[in-house]
Amino acid sequence: MPPQLKTLIPLFGAFIVLFLIARHFLVPVSFGELGHYRFNSIAENKEKAMNYAGKDACADCHDDKAAQLKSDVHSGLSCETCHGPGQAHTENPETVKLNKPDQRSFCGNCHSMNASRPKFMVQIELKEHNPDKKCIECHNPHQPWQLKE
């Protein structure tokens, strides 16, 4: 065998062995236990604090609002879409209060005129459509088409 190979083959062998040793120590514990991921990450993620409570949790107390929401075009929205994350509120309803957005610009996030929005989303020119009033003075956000007097 040529002397070059006598040196190179063991050198490459050593490199592969070193790689395998490094791999042994560097692959995280529980990796590959149930798939190509770190199994312990599931438990770690479960331990993280919850922020969102979900629509059903809101309906437990605010059944009237939930019924209103269900009856009109905003039925597909979650409560927390407008009011923000509500887990803390479900745990301490008296001390933690949720946001009740009432600015025109907030409604405009979905309803200001934009040609590339889907047609089924009602769109208005914010500057022209009753510019001095808040949207909620006429529209009930839970039932947008039940106009107030």
Binding site: P2, P3, L5, K6, T7, L11
Partner: peptide, 18 residues
Amino acid sequence: TLGVKDLSPRTVRWDDKI
């Protein structure tokens, strides 16, 4: 050199072949 210090024509030919 990785310890391969052989400069005989045969070994040098091997350098070329490999």
